[in-house]
Design a protein around this nucleic acid. Structure first.
Length: 577
RNA sequence: GCCCACAUAGCUCAGGAGGUCAGAGCGCAUCCUUGGUAAGGAUGAGGUCGCCGGUUCAACUCCGGCUGUGGGCUCCA
């Protein structure tokens, strides 16, 4: 994380919250009649929600910034007053949102803050005066439901940020710019990975040849790694009869995310999850404790109806493939099995270059199935497994799914952003709904616990994260084109072809740039395509059976024996460096 | 789905008070150049200005609807 100039988290919050008050004052002065929502500090800045008398757009932000600068120039004190709720009710009689907040405050006394002409209901604390704000910037404007509830009015939210000096602000803006530069949607198109076609439907991904190579490389790795860890791979169809989804409860609980169709008079569903197919396979015969835990794995493509407004590149789509598995295991083996899954997940993430995580444990929600004892048992298994790994985790109280608690692991990329990755979920619902069982050593039927887990999550989302993490400059083992051969003149083409043949023989992905162009241009384009190695071939190289090696971002590395290079390269690829 | 904005050539983007305003760069094609480490030169092809309606003598330009995209909200792998 870059140095932001704040001593403590509290200082930062106070500073930014104060900036949001200044912004609110500016908006109120520019747009009289505006009703105020709330204006907290957030991760990277602050926002304030307004109910404006007229719509505004990004074009209005500079005006608001000017007004804010003026208010800061006045250096008004932030003054705190403690008043009774009655007084507050009359003070904010024209501020409906504030009145609503007041209603929820238990204390009889509330505090308000005033700077200049502006008064706000606020717990504080604040900076001494507006003049303490040295560097700020309004970032964007967006709609946001009052109190995050889509049934309530939509307010206009303005996002901004502020820092004690100019420098960290500039740095922050640079970071935003950098994030835009590595946006997977932009790189995905530029590097020929994937596209989404308006005429084919939103949220549906078409992988182009290079993207397909990347995806296949990941898929192959996943299949091998699952096999190594005792998973059995299966393949299940994309559609299934609706009745199956009624039994599971999906038609009831998941209906708004499902695609339905009709075939010869019976209802079918485009599968939104892979679990039911795996349950059918589990139930295909009587299961014994001897084959437990039974781990069924599938690179399963699922389709979920997502509201149009939430779609976003590869990160939020309507059709995606999960590296999904369902583990049927004995209740007493739950923690052991979860420990293995966490091991697996962390191994895989570090293989892809992610070393930092945020871990969340979601507990029992208000609406749940199963008994509280079962929940407690599962939660303690999840906790136990996390603790075995010495993982720091946060508890998301009540955020579990209705059918069981879960662990979510988010990966941090090079820019410090968190991406949803592995989730491990215990399911109490489906074993009941489908009455699944196994025969124990005692000869009696027992109900297994079901673990629903993904390691990378969805390939789409993971690839999106990967593209941004590496900024499209993939390690050699993942790069769609690993080697670009650049012959200097036409007469070098025969030798170039020979080199290509040698590389192809080692299953290395190679291209020759045989265009009639100068090498300066070919090198430039090779670098822009982020190809790991360029091999320049001219008279000298053809003569000596060498290549002039150029490494992405490192420039010319000089003449190297072809055999030596191939050996080094093969090692780099197998080690996944 | 909701709020705001946007939609011009394959890509990035100009454009105007409704009327020689269909434009640039990159890319693509053809030709010249055979060149030693991040852009050689010339010529050319490409667009019913997202779609459907309306206003007008005239709409890429104004208005409405639809579709899609972006930033968010809610929801999520």
């Amino acid at each position: 994380m870059p140095e932001d100039g704040f001593e403590t988290r509290e200082d930062k919050d106070i500073y930014r919250h104060s900036t949001s008050h200044v912004m609110a004052q500016a908006v109120l002065e520019l747009f009289p009649g505006t009703k105020l929502g709330i204006g907290p500090s957030i991760e990277d800045g602050f926002y304030y929600d307004f109910d404006l008398p007229v719509p505004i757009s990004e074009d209005d932000l500079p005006r608001i910034e000017e007004k804010m600068a003026e208010i800061i120039g006045q250096d008004s004190l932030f003054e705190k007053y403690s008043i009774t709720k009655d007084e507050a009710n009359s003070l904010f009689k024209d501020a409906p949102y504030k009145l609503e907040l007041l209603k929820e405050i238990e204390d009889d006394k509330v505090t308000i803050y005033r700077q200049g002409s502006f008064v706000d209901l606020c717990r504080g604390p604040h900076l001494p005066s507006t003049g303490h704000i040295k560097a700020f910037k309004l970032i964007s404007i967006a709609g946001a439901y009052w109190r995050g509830d889509e049934k309530r009015p939509m307010l206009t939210r303005i996002y901004g940020t502020s820092f004690p000096t100019r420098e960290p602000l500039e740095e922050y803006l640079h970071r935003l710019e950098e994030a835009r530069r590595r946006d997977h949607r932009r790189l995905g198109r530029e590097l020929g990975f994937f596209n989404i076609y308006e005429e084919a439907g939103p949220g549906l991904i078409y992988y182009h040849p290079y993207g397909t190579i990347l995806r296949e490389e990941i898929s192959k790795l996943l299949k091998r790694e699952h096999q190594k860890r005792g998973y059995l791979e299966v393949v299940t169809p994309h559609i299934a009869k609706m009745d199956l989804w009624k039994t599971s409860g999906h038609c009831e609980f998941y209906r708004e995310n499902m695609f339905f169709m009709e075939v010869e008079g019976s209802g079918y569903v485009l599968k939104p999850m892979n679990c039911l197919g795996h349950i059918l396979i589990y139930q295909s015969r009587t299961r014994s404790y001897r084959e437990m835990p039974l781990r069924l794995f599938e690179l399963g493509t699922v389709y979920r109806y997502e509201r149009s407004g939430v779609l976003h590149g590869l990160l939020r789509v309507r059709g995606f493939t999960q590296d999904d598995a369902h583990i049927f295991c004995q209740r007493e083996k739950l923690q052991e099995e979860i420990t293995k899954v966490i091991d697996f997940a962390l191994d895989m993430l570090s293989l892809f270059g992610f070393k930092e995580y945020e871990v969340y444990l979601s507990t029992r929600p208000e609406k749940f199935v199963g008994t509280p004892q079962k929940w407690d048992e599962a939660i303690s298994s999840l906790k136990g497994a996390l603790e075995e790994h010495d993982l720091l985790y946060a508890i998301d109280e009540g955020e579990g799914v209705f059918y069981g608690p879960k662990i979510d692991i988010k990966l941090k990329d090079t820019l410090g952003r968190a991406w949803q990755g592995p989730t491990i979920q215990v399911d109490f619902n489906l074993p009941d709904q489908f009455d699944i069982s196994y025969i124990g050593p005692d000869g009696a039927r027992h109900q297994p616990v079901m673990i629903h887990r993904v390691v990378l999550g969805s390939l789409e989302r993971f690839i999106g994260a990967l593209i941004e993490h590496f900024s499209g400059a993939f390690p050699t083992w993942l790069a769609p084109v690993q080697i670009l051969i650049v012959p200097i003149a036409d007469r070098h083409l025969p030798y170039a072809k020979r080199v290509e043949g040698d590389l192809l023989g080692r299953e290395i992905r190679v291209e020759i740039d045989s265009r009639n162009e100068k090498i300066g241009l070919k090198i430039r384009e090779g670098e822009l395509r982020k190809i790991p190695y360029l091999l320049i071939i001219g008279d000298k190289e053809a003569q000596n059976q060498t290549i002039a090696l150029r490494k992405r971002g490192k420039g010319d590395l000089g003449e190297v024996k072809l055999a030596d290079f191939i050996e080094k390269l093969t090692r780099e690829i197998t080690k996944r460096d």
